[in-house]
Design a protein around this nucleic acid. Structure first.
Length: 499
DNA sequence: TTCGACACATAAGT
DNA sequence: CACTTATGTGTCGA
């Protein structure tokens, strides 16, 4: 049903040459596993963290957590059973088999919102499971060579920083301060007026002083700030439209909505202990949604046989996916991001999910802000319309079903397909080192990658890096108390207090 | 110095 | 309006 005939397509010399070139850079950005010391490359490091402690969490979550919060994290008893199933799956189980399991399960529960969300969860976990499986297998197979490409942030980012003057809270505070200082100096037209102003000024002053000593409010909506602009889409592997062999140009967009702010010298600063939020979507140039789903796409994969590189083969893209990775300015630590649930310490931790995705529009900052921590069913439903494409709905609307569908849509592992990949409650793993030298901080970059998920001869799914975008250098401040007293740029802890 | 764990506090969500 | 949640960050101790 979901098997894709593996085409051993013959390609022209030119195609091959282009593909070689592209293939060489295709996987450059996929980080290797930390303990990957034998040079064996891994396509993906996202795997379902096997050592999660869910005890005590499930009951709590089942009672208290909104479905939305369940999406990526929560394992109710039913899901746990799923996990068991998935984890018990023989290593060489095929993608197809996976999907059958999934579909069977989906047929079982697909009625209410909770189940819809469970489906999201399942989708993601399936994807992760796939990748984990993939990864395991790759450890026994010849690998694509991962070529390191030097980070080239400086020019790009200085440019984009200049072009994106974001009015930060710091700037606002400074303006505010100036305003306050000006108040007493204004001409006094009347005694009562001036008196009034003085009182105002005094009130503001004490407010500000108080603010200077107050902790940042943990739930302040003010913590949502637009982060640095991302680079232009960089292409790693070409995408072609299956019908007419046209070269298709993918465009990735991403925005950080929480967790990073500009410091006074234009650097972007985040805090290791705090969450950040990032959203991303992609589009294919000249392809609206209808055109997208009425087409299939292919790319080239560098294949290997018995450990020897064996040229490139044309492979159909089963579906697209979006993932988030972080890189460090010097060493590259592969799993450097972690996602928490709303329960934080009391819940499990995951690597950021890989989102099977269709093209979509990036929602604006306010929308992302509004989407956080919702438990109300109606609101969640509305948000899901923004962030997800519901294949079931679509089939009902066009009077199709999975069996009749012949589009790329049917290859997606779940009915809930991301239009927008939303990464919430992400932190750099505690193991990252933020200090390089006494004076110098190491910096990080965030990369959003568009993946093409393909199936190899053995029906194993494999991701191929198609294109990516990256953030400018990000400074991540560590836990040292020194980072929490001066030059603080977030929250309303005052910039007034210049210790 | 750094990290996990626990604690406190407070705006948002219901 | 009262109750619950989510999350920045203070702190302790290995």
């Amino acid at each position: 049903m979901l098997t894709i005939p593996s085409e051993e397509a013959s390609i022209t010399q030119d195609d091959a040459a282009a593909a070689v070139a592209a293939a060489n850079s295709a996987v450059a950005n996929i980080p290797q596993l930390k303990d990957d010391d034998n040079g064996t490359a891994h396509h993906l490091h996202h795997s379902y963290a096997p050592q999660h402690q869910h005890q005590g969490y499930d009951a709590l979550a089942a009672q208290n957590l909104a479905p939305q919060q369940h999406q990526q994290h929560q394992l109710d008893p039913q899901m746990q059973q799923h996990q068991q199933q998935l984890h018990n799956v023989p290593q060489r189980m095929t993608h197809q088999h996976h999907l059958q399991q999934h579909l069977a399960q989906f047929a079982q529960d697909h009625h209410n919102v909770q189940q819809h969300d469970r489906d999201h969860l399942l989708s993601q976990q399936l994807a992760q499971q796939h990748f984990q499986q993939q990864q395991q297998q790759q450890q026994q197979q010849p690998q694509l060579h991962h070529q390191q490409i030097p980070l080239q942030h400086q020019q790009n980012h200085q440019l984009s920083q200049q072009n994106h003057q974001v009015l930060t809270q710091q700037a606002l505070n400074q303006q505010h301060q100036v305003l306050n200082q000006q108040i007493p100096q204004q001409p006094h037209h009347s005694l009562s007026h001036s008196h009034h102003l003085e009182m105002l000024a005094q009130a503001n002053e004490s407010d500000l002083l108080e603010a200077a000593n107050r902790k940042v409010a943990p739930r302040s909506s003010d913590l949502f700030r637009v982060g640095p602009p991302f680079s232009e889409t960089r292409h790693h592997q070409d995408i072609y439209c299956k019908g007419n062999d046209m070269d298709v140009n993918p465009i990735l967009e991403a925005r950080i909505d929480r967790g990073f702010e500009v410091g006074e010298n234009g650097t972007w600063i985040g805090y290791k202990r705090n969450y950040f939020t990032l959203v991303s979507s992609f589009s294919l140039e000249n392809f609206d949604f209808d055109r997208f789903i009425s087409n299939k796409f292919y790319t080239y994969e560098k294949s290997s046989r018995n450990g020897e590189p064996a040229g490139e083969s044309k492979v159909e893209i089963s579906y697209f996916a979006v993932r988030l990775v972080a890189k460090c300015s010097d060493d590259d630590v592969s799993i450097s991001l972690i996602q928490h649930t709303a329960k934080r310490d009391k819940g499990p931790q995951f690597p950021p999910p890989i989102y099977p995705a269709v093209p979509g529009d990036l929602p604006d900052h306010e929308t992302v802000k509004a989407s956080c921590n919702k438990r109300n069913g109606g609101k969640i439903e509305n948000m899901n319309k923004v962030f997800y494409f519901d294949r079931g709905d679509y089939y009902r609307n066009v009077n199709l079903d999975t069996l009749k569908d012949n589009s790329i849509l049917k290859n997606y592992p779940s009915d809930s397909i991301a239009r927008v990949a939303r990464f919430e409650r992400i932190q750099f793993t505690s193991s990252i080192r933020v200090k390089q030298t006494a004076s110098n901080s190491r910096y990080f970059t965030l990369h959003v990658e568009l993946l093409g998920i393909i199936e190899d001869e053995d029906l194993q799914i494999q991701p191929i890096l198609l294109s990516s975008i990256e953030s400018p250098p990000l400074i991540v401040r560590g836990r040292s108390p020194s980072n929490y007293h001066k030059d603080r740029t977030s929250g309303y802890r005052g910039h007034i207090a210049q210790h």
